[in-house]
């Protein structure tokens, strides 16, 4: 299955999830997206920078010497989930959803999707 199809599966399962992005955290580049709205490249770049800050920033480094694999941000309008594959540390997945998303189910699906992507040859 192509990466975009894996991302689309999340979007289909969670209609209130409006942006899903797969990124290379080592180069801070978004490699693939699935989005119900038009997302500008500069917004994707910001999203990727934010993802690396959340997963590799000072708070994460204080929290643990091991790489942080999950971060979630609850805002006033969105829930944003950042995931990193535990083996392929450069593989990152980000989901931006509205606040009524089934948070527990989203986390499970996002973890599964990242595993599928990391398992790709």
């Amino acid at each position: 299955m192509k990466i975009v199809e894996i991302l689309d599966q999340i979007e289909t399962a969670f209609p209130t999830c409006h942006t899903i992005a797969f990124a290379d955290l080592s180069t801070k580049m978004v490699l693939c997206t699935s989005s119900s709205t038009d997302v500008r490249q500069e917004d994707l770049d910001k999203l990727c920078t934010t993802m690396t800050t959340a997963l590799d920033g000072k708070i994460a480094s204080l929290a643990s010497a091991e790489p942080t694999v999950e971060a979630m941000v609850f805002g006033t309008e969105n829930v944003t989930v950042y995931l990193r594959d535990g083996d392929e540390l450069a593989d990152g997945l980000c989901c931006v959803c509205s606040t009524d998303v089934d948070f527990g189910a989203l986390m499970s699906s996002a973890r599964e999707a990242l595993s599928q992507i990391a398992a790709q040859p």
Partner: peptide
């Protein structure tokens, strides 16, 4: 805006 961050690391 108010926000809450949770890290799966501790």
């Amino acid at each position: 805006e108010p926000a809450c961050l949770i890290l799966d690391a501790s």
